[in-house]
Amino acid sequence: MTEHTFSDETLMAFADGELSQDETEAVERAMEADEALALRVEAFMETRLKSQEALKPLLDEPVPEALRRKVEGLVAGNAEQAENVVRFPQKRPSVPVSTPRWAVPLAASVALVAGVAGGYWLGLTDPGGTSGLQAAYLGSPDVVQALHEVASGKEKDLGGSERFRAIASYKDTNGDLCREFEVDHPDKSTVVAVACNIEKTWKVQFTVVAARNTEGYAPASSLEALNAYLTAVGASDPLSEAAERSALEALKPQK
């Protein structure tokens, strides 16, 4: 019996090289005189070694091709983004990044970067001109009104030759109501946008400004970016007419 007893934690820390110089020397001295102590230390070393050996095969496995390609795509996209502060939403990483089943909150933030440089609050006045570009397209309070009223598939004139068209409604993963809509402008452009009602405020999550074709709808190419966005945020399937109506009803101010 030595003058000093050592706890398992201390001997383990010794085995792992985590003790201070003084403590290390104390254990070493004790081990010389006490074979049982040396055995206990050795057992801790062995568990470490055995664990490493046991999980080594996992390390040697090739990384699945799909995963490797996705991450390489992410890295490439990230580098591109760093060099290109102003990017068009279509310029996503060349490798399609499919969304993991449960990756929604992060993917949403990524898509936000791709879609619009920071959301802005619909219906607010332009704060000092920084969001002047977007506000010029969607700043009208009539848009907010229309978001509350117009059923998907229906249109509404906003005045000033602007035309609002509700496309679809869906729930995002937080259960917030989101609406996809288009606004035609007199200058022959169409804004394709998604706004979500978060804490009673419509917040634009995504916008693309597209030149309008003769039918008055945004061309399909700009919708690819939208689809990528919707996939990335894990949007639900579009709500039925009735579900949409009751969701909109629920947003009505109680006064």
């Binding site: 996705k70 991450v71 992410l74 990756a103």
Partner: peptide, 11 residues
């Protein structure tokens, strides 16, 4: 695990 790795890389 592969999903988790992807998420981790994105973050």
């Amino acid at each position: 695990a592969d999903d988790l790795v992807q998420i981790t890389c994105e973050k």
